[in-house]
Structure formats: C-alpha cells, structure tokens
Design a protein around this nucleic acid. Structure first.
Lengths: 119, 119, 119, 119
DNA sequence: GTGGTCTAGACCACG
DNA sequence: GTGGTCTAGACCACA
C-alpha cells in the first residue's frame, strides 16, 4: 500500500507520513483500522524502524492516528484533521490560482480544466 | 527589489531565485534587463556571495537568464521559461483539484472560489 | 464501574489503578469493600490478567488496598493513602500556580476561577 | 542553562524541550535569541545530537522556535504559543481544583495557598 | 560551521 | 509481540 521512492525529494519519513495521511483522509483507511507495525513496515520498505516511527509519530501529533504501546497504531477519528487539511489545500488552491492569473492564464481556462478533471 | 526572509522555510538561494523568476515571468524585469552583480546583491542582502551565485546559476539553467563573462547577467527571452513554468503550475493545479475532490469538495465550490479571486 | 479507554494515553494498568484509587479516595468504595477478582475484572474489561494484576499490586503498594491470599483484595483504611495523595496534589497545585503567575496570570484571576468551579 | 536529570521520568528530549519552552514563555529567552547549536548542546549535556535535535524539532513544530539550516535555531515570536500554553495550564488548574475538592479540600484552603505563594 | 535525515542496533515499557 | 527512547555515527544541504 505504501511505497517509498528514493528519487523523491521528500524525506522517506514524510513519504510514509503523506501516504498514510492521504489514505486516511480519503477514507481508504477508516477510523479504528490498524496500521502495520513499525517493525513490519520498516522491513517491508527496507528502511530503518526509526524512519517509520517518525512518520507514525507525526501522524499522531496531527491527530490522524493514535498509538497504544504494546498494542499497535490505529487510525483516529479523522474529522478534525480532515477539516484542517482541507482548509490548507484550499489555501494552496487560491495562491496557485493567483499565481497562474499573474502569468496570464484566464479564469475561463481554469474553469475548463476543472470540468476536464471531473470526467 | 529582492528581499530575504530568514524565517521563511525556503533556503535563501531559493528565495532569491524565486524572487527574480517571479519578476521576470510577471514582466517586471524584461528581456535584456541586467541583473545586479553577484557581489553587489550579496552585500546588499548581507548574504554569502555563494548563495547569490547559486540563485543565478539555477536561473540560467532554467533559461530565465543568461550570463556574459565580464559583463553580467541578463534577463533572457521569457517565452520558453514561461511556458515551462506555466505547464508546471497547471500540473500542480490539476493534482490539487483531484485531491480536493477526493475530500468531497465539489467542482462548483472551486468554481466559486475562482470567481472570488478574480476581484 | 471501571472503564478502559484505548485512546487514553495512559497505559491500561494505570487507568484501572487510577479508577479504583479515585473511587476509594472519594468514598465510593469504602474500607473493607471487596474488589472484583483479577480474573473477573480482566475478562469483563477484555484485557490481559497481568494488566489488572499490576494495577492491584500498585494499589497495594500505595496502601489503598490489601490482599488476603485465597480471599481477594479489599479496600484499606483510606486515611494514610488519602493524606499522601492529597499532599501530592497540593504540591502540584502550588507549582502550577507558580508557573501561571510567571506567565502573568494574577492571583485574582485564579481566585475567580476557584469560585467558578465551586458551583 | 538547560539541565538533564536521568532520574526524571520524562524522556531527555522532553526535558530539554520543556526547559527551553519554559524559558521562552517566561521571557528569559526573547524572540530572536539564538539557541545553542545542536552539536554544542549535545556535547555539553553529554547526550546524543539526535536527542537535542528532537527537542528542537518539537519546539519548532509548536511555533516556539524557528531553525535555519546553516545558520542556527532562534526563538520565535512567542505570542501565539504563549496563549495556547496558558490556556492549557488553566485547564489543568481547573481539573486539579476539582479533584482536590472531591477529596474534601475546601476552596478556602486553596485560596489561602494562593496567597501564601504570592510572597 | 549550521540544521536535517538516515542507519544499525540497543534497551525499556506494555500486553 | 507492540510502540517509545536513546546512542553512535554517517551523509547531505546550506551559509
């Protein structure tokens, strides 16, 4: 499910983090689902356990995941994290639009692109 | 014209690079205009000359700027760089839209946002 | 009576421990009352018997509970444990107050908060 | 300035973190002040650089500190973090008061303690 | 020189 | 078995 790409400029821990977060926010992983253990995932991805641990820790700090010592790591109720994440993406959307318009792209072109993606 | 913010998470060389690129693509700096010398800019910004050097080098690699030994650095014809840059931004736009829709944001909501930003 | 919450950051043995201690110190459980057996409670809570065992052991070490081989665990005279516990909480109270005052919160504000909570 | 106590139940990285946060929020360290470098502090405290690094990283995630690669770590404008921290402490204050009252401590006793600490 | 990431592997706490 | 902390030391990006 999670993949690591050494060509990616993002650090590995963040690729793992982003991968899970996306799946959680998209509903692929649902509240209460158990994540693979740190050890299992680290061997599967052939990375250091610390690296996976850090990804999980940051997910937990964001409220996407909760960990129980001796039991495992689980998907948390996503509502809060989801709302924050959506707000962040909309902010990025706005600034991208602004930048594109500064380069001469018309809102009309962007609107057409929106429809294109709906297909 | 160019400013450096130490609290910005981007490295300084990239702030310098982004600042010039934006001005070039937006038409503030026009083809043939001369950029400040590495030495002058580095003292003005109170940063290491290497840092400015690297910003100029990357601008040149992108085709935004050309250097003439012993003369200085000049803004190149923007068309090529602009086209590439615009394509990159549009790609980011598409993937952002896709992700937002995965989170349940409707194209209608995004369209309204587009109009809001047109002001 | 006792509940376990896996989302709680405290380990389970401590949730069990704290739950009993609170009930004992508050007088819900009175000296001489019998606690449920380790086996019964562990099945009721669906946790490992070791976990309950440890909670009981620590309660006993604190003097909140005493065990009689072959009979069970019973609430001890609370006075000793209560005094120790109250002293500990008062200590925490003092250091909290000190820290809040260092941040500019006036004793007056805290006094008002005290009254608010009396309701 | 910062000390590590191996008897303390808190992990080392958190002792370092808490120590700096307290000094920052109390105004001992002021916005813009430079923190000791990761390497310097780690040798001074005789701990691993990673441990200090983690403390700094979490301070940065909280907005107490900002780090610039190649330059150092600096105290951020504390206002936001301070407000959040104070709210957290007041919450702890309330629940402590509630617990103490459940044990029979009167608000009057607590009020006297407040004045005692003012000295 | 600075901070940031990663590995290899240890030990602890918990169930 | 699980997650959490820590060490020792490497390598990279940046100034």
């Amino acid at each position: 499910m999670i993949q690591v790409n050494y060509q990616d400029s993002r650090p590995i821990y963040q690729q793992v983090h982003d991968g899970f977060r996306r799946q959680i926010l998209a509903g692929v992983l649902r509240p209460g689902d158990q994540l693979p253990s740190v050890r299992e995932l680290s061997t599967r991805l052939a990375v250091n356990p610390n690296t996976v641990q850090r990804a999980y820790r940051e997910l937990e700090q964001e409220g996407c995941v909760y960990s129980v010592r001796g039991k495992g790591s689980f998907v948390a109720d996503a509502s809060d994290a989801a709302r924050a994440h959506q707000a962040e993406l909309l902010g990025r959307f706005d600034s991208l639009v602004q930048e594109l318009q500064a380069l001469g792209v018309t809102p009309e072109q962007l609107r057409q692109r929106l429809e294109g993606g709906t297909t």
